[in-house]
């Protein structure tokens, strides 16, 4: 059973269709990288999958549990808020601009949701948070406020915050786009390590090199549809579609 399953997703903004009939299944341990020009709908797809945006049509489920009350093919009716919150415990999301809570220290950023949302034991959460900080190389910054960190450090805290919830999968929405190139490498290294530990990941990025080396599957999106998908060596190195070819040529 796939961890994430999206079928026949349709989404319009003010009558303009931005996603038309997208279907996507992500299996346990799989790393899926989504590439495509801006405006192609890849961010909207991620926002729909993480319940930040509502879908118009289609189904969304995690480990076989659907977010919808509506019958297939009918306009989407979401389950009650409490049900959706349970579904959210399946995944974490790392934003392009971090969205750390500025009034919390690094440790509070990591521990607040596990303690107050998941009602876990504060001591146990604290131990986990410390080991996660060590993992992203920020053991000494637990008491700092986000405002005192560099962009790269902030993004590493954001990854640790997502991991502290013990999610079954992680979404990354252009995690390096707000960072300088020399800092990008550090973030990608953390993500590669997660992939090596078999974390299920869906990554929207422009880092083609990362896609080539880490992805199990690459999806190229344009104009609200999945144009091409497959192994990185096929999609990136031998694209079959003219639009994919043009996008990759412009990028390199």
């Amino acid at each position: 059973m796939p961890v994430l399953s999206i079928s026949h997703l349709k989404k319009s903004f003010d009558g303009k269709e931005v996603l038309s009939d997208i279907s996507l299944a992500v299996n346990q341990g799989e790393v899926v990288v989504i590439i495509g020009p801006s405006g192609s709908g890849k961010s909207t797809l991620l926002r729909c999958a993480t319940l930040l945006e509502t879908m118009d049509y289609g189904d969304l489920s995690y480990n076989g549990v659907s977010a919808m009350d509506s019958a297939p093919g009918r306009p989407c009716v979401y389950k009650p808020e409490a049900e959706l919150r349970k579904l959210k415990s399946n995944f974490g999301l790392v934003f392009q601009d971090f969205n750390l809570f500025p009034h919390f220290t690094v440790m509070q950023n990591l521990c607040d949701a596990p303690v107050h949302v998941q009602k876990r034991d504060p001591e146990e959460v604290k131990k986990q948070a410390l080991s996660l900080l060590a993992k992203v190389g920020l053991s000494d910054r637990g008491g700092a406020y986000p405002g005192q960190l560099s962009g790269g450090q902030k993004q590493r805290v954001a990854i640790a915050r997502a991991l502290c919830m013990n999610p079954k999968m992680l979404f990354f929405d252009e995690p390096t786009s707000a960072l300088d190139p020399e800092i990008t490498a550090g973030i990608l290294r953390v993500m590669r390590q997660l992939a090596a530990e078999h974390m299920t990941m869906v990554v929207v990025t422009h880092e083609i090199d990362f896609a080539r080396r880490v992805a199990d599957r690459v999806i190229f999106m344009d104009g609200g549809v999945i144009v091409e998908e497959g192994k990185p060596e096929d999609v990136i190195d031998h694209p079959g579609n003219a639009r994919t070819q043009e996008f990759l040529r412009k990028l390199s």
Partner: peptide, 15 residues
């Protein structure tokens, strides 16, 4: 983004 981060982490509206 603050509201969205909280939403993804599963905070209730009140929280």
């Amino acid at each position: 983004g603050q509201r969205e981060a909280a939403q993804v982490l599963g905070y209730t509206k009140h929280q």
